[in-house]
Every structure is written in structure tokens, then in C-alpha cells.
Nucleic acid binder design. Structure first.
Lengths: 193, 193
DNA sequence: GTCTATACCAGGATAGAC
DNA sequence: GTCTATCCTGGTATAGAC
């Protein structure tokens, strides 16, 4: 593949490697395959990223930052709408045939080192916490029932559901309906007590 | 590792390989690692399973059969109780530090051949269908609301949630609470219309 | 910053002795 | 049915020329 000019090759490599991990998994991508996508020879990659695990750690950190920025753009007033908008981020990921980068890493947990694991752990915790805050806010606003709804547990269930949906979308295209299943789950906790 | 006598080495290999896949992933296990767990040399495995993909296909088929048998033992009268009991199968899997075999394969979809994919596809479809039947039955029995609950969508959401929970359990032990999140989701669709 | 050449190891697979 | 020896391939990594 030809290499577009004007853009640091380092960023090019980070993006190409991320795509490979999100489509083939941690062990399914190699310096060889990355070299092929980036239009460079495999040993040249070592000049930018001496060790594979450093490359993966940097990709994970960048993914976490960029996803956080994406989530920050969600500005609906309604808490329920914010949750639906959040699910759209996953629907879009599934639509373009990618998995969640951190989900992919979690699936091959034993293949990564501590630095990578720490980033993924933090990412998961942040996402669940963001969802929990949505639920709490929805309860405060009267959109979501207070009785019978535990914000922390429901947030974990929602997040697990999104991760699972992305996992299943790999084998079943029809699972792209992440937003519809999210609506199904959230629809049942709305309304007054 | 020493090899217990009296049991066909073939079954021994199938079990050891399944454990390896469920803990290290498809690409994380090799004939070498399997040989080490089974107390045999790597080339000897080829006598029982000439090609790795055949071995994986057989493991997947066996897993599907055994899981189906397990699900068949769920005999609670209440549909909600059956769903909770079903979630316990996943909770137990997480507890012993394993992932769902088919979930692990889905995560490394590009690393397996068509025969394996067909088995995993069938497994997922069967499980979602089983859950859907539970929801429909619950509605018929008056346990689960009819209005606003789409059995197919809710079943897919439930199943995705279970798969996601198992995925997340790999990085976060506290995610073992698969049953509590299942209760949280199912609790909101119960009661009359 | 990228290349060629190369070292080294691991994985899957086969041949043939025992 | 299991072993040793061996082949081939691919993956990570380094050295050193350009």
C-alpha cells in the first residue's frame, strides 16, 4: 500500500496497527502484516516502536483518549438519550467491521503485558462509571425509576451487553442492532416509580 | 504432567485443549502447549488430530453438545428462574477462570476455518433461541410483561450481556457477578402489563 | 528513516524408527 | 501409539549499509 505524504509515519503505523488488532486480534496481527498495510518493511517498524508490547500499549492509550473525547461530545439533555447515543458509538464500530480495541485485548488477555492491561482496566472502569452516572442522573431527573434500579449493577449490565454485542457481531452481521437491544434494556427502567 | 490411566488419550487431549483455548485463546494455544499439559510430545498429537483446525472443530462440536445437555437440565417451572439458572452456567464458567469457548473463538474469528465457524454460529443461534423461548413462555405464564417486551430483542440483549460479562471477567474478577446483572435486567420486565 | 541481511525461536506438519 | 529428527514458515528482533 502506498503511503500518503504529509502525515507522520508514526501516526500512520498507530492507525494501521489499531485497525489490524480490531479486525484480527492481538495475536492475529504482526509486524509483517503491519508493514504490508503501512507500505514499509517490517524491520523499519522497530525504529518507531522497538517492541510490540510498547506499540500495543500506545495504541490502547490513544484509543482510550480518543474514545473519551467521543463520549464527551454526547450532549443530549435526557439521560436515556445519552445512553442511546453512547450505544451508537458501538453500533458504528460494529458497522465498520471492527471490535472494541479493549474488548479484543481482553479476549487475549494472556498475550499482553502489565502496562497494556492497566490501560484496558482503566478504560473499562471509566466506561462503566460514565454509564452509572447517566443512570443516577436519569433517576434524579425522574426519567428512570429509582425503585428496583441499582445504577452500578445496571451500568455493568449495559456495558457487558455492549461488549458482548460487538463480540457477537464478528460472527453474525445481524447483531449490528446494538442500539435496538440497548433501547430494549433501557426502555424497561424508565417511567415513574 | 503425568497422564492418568484408564481414559482414552484422545479425550484427554480434547479436554486439555479446550481448557487452553478457554484460558489463552485460539492463537494462544499450540500443539506444544497442549503436549505439555497432556504429558505427550507435540508430534504425537498429530496421530489423533492431524490438523489443528480439525481439533478445534471437534472441541467446538463437543462443547456445543455438552452445553446443550447442561441447559436441558434446567427444569425450574418459572421462566424467570430458568433464565437465572441459565446465567449461573456462565457465572460458574467465570468462577473457574474460563471464557465461553465459542466466545473465545468469536474473538479470534479470522483464525478459524469455515467448519469451526459453522458450529459457533449454530451455538449462538441456539442459545439466543432458548432464551427467547423462555421470555415467550414467561409472557404466556404472566410472569413477564407482554407490552413493551420484544422476546427476540430481549433474548439477544441478554445473551450479549452474558458473553460480554464473561469477556470482562477476564480482566476484572469482580465481574463474576453475572447472575446479579442478569437479575437486574430481568427484574425490570416482570410483573403484569 | 529505511533498507537488506541475518539470527533466533516457535508453530504446524511429515517421515520413519521403535 | 509414541518417539526423534527434520522441514518449512512466520514472527520478533538486531546489525549495519545507505
Amino acid at each position: 500500500m502506498a503511503r500518503p505524504t504529509g502525515r507522520p509515519i508514526r501516526n500512520e503505523l498507530l492507525d494501521a496497527a489499531r485497525l489490524l488488532i480490531q479486525t484480527r486480534g492481538i495475536n492475529g496481527f504482526s509486524y509483517g502484516s503491519l508493514a504490508a498495510s503501512a507500505g514499509i518493511k517490517a524491520p523499519s517498524i522497530h525504529h518507531h516502536f522497538p517492541h510490540k508490547d510498547q506499540l500495543v500499549a500506545e495504541i490502547a492509550a490513544q484509543y482510550r483518549d480518543e474514545f473519551t473525547d467521543l463520549v464527551r461530545t454526547i450532549d443530549a439533555t435526557s439521560a436515556v438519550d445519552r445512553i442511546i447515543d453512547y450505544s451508537r458509538l458501538y453500533a458504528e464500530t460494529a458497522r465498520v467491521g471492527r471490535s472494541c480495541l479493549c474488548g479484543a485485548i481482553a479476549a487475549e488477555w494472556s498475550s499482553v503485558g502489565e502496562p497494556v492491561r492497566d490501560v484496558v482496566d482503566a478504560f473499562f472502569a471509566e466506561q462503566v462509571e460514565w454509564l452509572r452516572n447517566c443512570v443516577v442522573d436519569g433517576q434524579r431527573r425522574g426519567e428512570i425509576r429509582v425503585e428496583g434500579v441499582d445504577p452500578a449493577t445496571f451500568a455493568r449490565a449495559l456495558f457487558a451487553h455492549l461488549q458482548g454485542a460487538l463480540l457477537l457481531a464478528r460472527s453474525d452481521d445481524s447483531f449490528g442492532g446494538v442500539t435496538s437491544t440497548t433501547r430494549e434494556l433501557v426502555g424497561h427502567i424508565t417511567g415513574g416509580d
